[in-house]
Design a protein around this nucleic acid. Structure first.
Lengths: 300, 300
DNA sequence: CCGACATATACTCAAACTGAGTAAAAGGGA
DNA sequence: TCCCTTTTACTCAGTTTGAGTATATGTCGG
């Protein structure tokens, strides 16, 4: 085997939802994701990450999932003889347990991706982005049609519906078109706040992964306090998905899955009729398999 | 930053389906997955893998997706001062383009996982495994109930349905119970063929990933020749899922998604009525977004 | 040449699920 | 007391899904 050596670096995308706003933990005034070296003492990658997140931030993190491993060259121009392998993780932090989640260090997802929040309808930023991307598509005669289709599909134009799971795809498209600051574009209220190196891309990866995952696995509860109302739960999901959901149907979905149970307490925080408080039924993880299954099964 | 250095190793799980049998490319007489070092010249991890797969095997590989990155210690006992980071990839190889896919080097998935093939009903191996795991569950008084639930759910016992996507979970359970050879168990027709180090676990990861992915993304076509019959397509999906599918419903699903189109040719290979030949409509990738969406959406 | 056989293709039907809308209940505050 | 707000409960049509049945079109044996 060849003796090529490399640095190993762990990068964490830690997410919490506070005040119905999804947030990510950052360093350097919001310009980078927290990261640290992978050391020999660490038992495994996952254990290594857990350790230093605990040391550095004090946030106990529940759910932790590997996102992606990068090793592209040109990432650190001063270090050409050696490569850095970056292994990124998505971690979910419970709101309750993160009292500093509104403090410096935590920044809203949608500061970095203003076009991703569709809870109040299509965000104004999207119109400008669409315009810029359409121009980009038109600028290359030979690939125009193909590009236009990608733009339409990603942004939900010309008959296509907005798909919140395409967050990464959208960012990569904007990168390719040179719109975002990391690719030479400007940084403003339309194209969002940039980050160090490819950190914003990792955040986009995390958002995409999480938006997909909440649909078939009960990970939202890793972000919820011990007891919560149905509306609180719905608003958390909406914050992550960047979409408004139909209330009656959301409730139906939740209780037909038997994911939660009443605590018996009530909450009267919101000014209207008091709401029942619920807690997550941890046992459900053992009872059901919770899989999607979209194949036409037979029974022989 | 700390100066911890590590080897970087790329591991490929290359899969093809030949004669309705899913196969994986191996080295060392079927005992290991092909792997190679990640070198400085490589542009990126993905590019690195592509290069040496091409060099070593000659199989042009279409689809390539990162699976997982490992760095657990104790993996190579002779090399304690340094860590090896293993980045595994899932690659799909077209049947047509892999004429050696039945030759040595290629082995059927179900040699390694005899309990995973449910196309002809529950495989006989499963009964013995269930027995052994039940005994294992009963052997620990304090955790018995929890263990029993895990067993029931994984194997589809006591009212639970068999879920083909739990392949990795099942392997980990058998590992934990010491059933498989890699964890000190025996190697026979029930527990399947072992592999070097954690390679069988990586294969299980690949199987799980692929079984999930075929449901919401048209990756099967990466395994199909240029033209094929509907039955051929169905048998390929069945081979991967390890399940029998309901024929009329499979057809309905396929053509309502407009994934394929007729070539105009017919095939009369199978002894019965000749079947129409189809080809994959590559354009579909651009037209549709193809996402699952299991949230109760609203439209304001 | 004919009829059994095998597979392909086409159609039907009920149950479950999904998107969407409406109505009643239960608090707080003017 | 009445209005406002939010929770909770119910309805309904259109679609999707699992499952079963029927017909078409070849090959092959006699």
């Amino acid at each position: 085997m060849n003796d090529a050596l490399a640095h190993a670096e762990l990068i964490a995308v830690l997410t919490a939802v506070t005040n119905d706003e999804p947030r990510v933990m950052t360093v350097s005034k919001g310009e980078a994701l927290p990261s640290g070296p992978f050391e020999l003492e660490h038992r495994s990658l996952q254990a290594g990450l857990r350790e230093w997140v605990n040391e550095q931030t004090g946030h106990p993190l529940g759910y932790l999932e590997q996102l992606y491993t990068f090793a592209d060259r040109d990432r650190s121009p001063h270090d050409r003889a050696r490569r850095t392998i970056s292994i990124s993780y998505l971690g979910l932090v419970r709101e309750q347990a993160a009292p500093g989640a509104g403090a410096p260090g935590w920044h809203g997802w949608y500061e970095y991706f203003p076009w991703e929040d569709h809870r109040e309808g299509r965000p104004p930023a999207l119109a400008s982005i669409a315009e810029a991307l359409n121009a980009w598509a038109a600028s290359d005669v030979s690939r125009r049609e193909h590009r236009q289709k990608r733009v339409d599909l990603s942004l939900g134009l010309n008959g296509a519906a907005w798909n919140e799971e395409l967050a990464l795809q959208r960012f990569e498209l904007m990168y390719e078109a040179g719109l975002v600051a990391e690719a030479g574009g400007v940084s403003d209220r339309v194209t969002g706040r940039p980050m160090f190196a490819d950190h914003r891309r990792m955040l986009a990866t995390a958002i995409t992964r999480l938006r997909a995952k909440i649909k078939y696995r009960p990970v939202v509860f890793e972000l919820m306090p011990a007891s919560f109302t149905l509306s609180h739960l719905q608003h958390t999901v909406e914050a992550l998905a960047g979409l408004g959901l139909h209330k009656p149907n959301f409730r139906r979905l939740i209780d037909q899955q038997e994911l939660i149970e009443e605590t018996g307490e009530m909450s009267s925080e919101t000014g209207g009729r008091p709401a029942k408080l619920y807690r997550y039924r941890r046992a459900i993880l053992e009872e059901h398999a919770l899989s999607s299954a979209r194949l036409p099964l037979s029974r022989n």
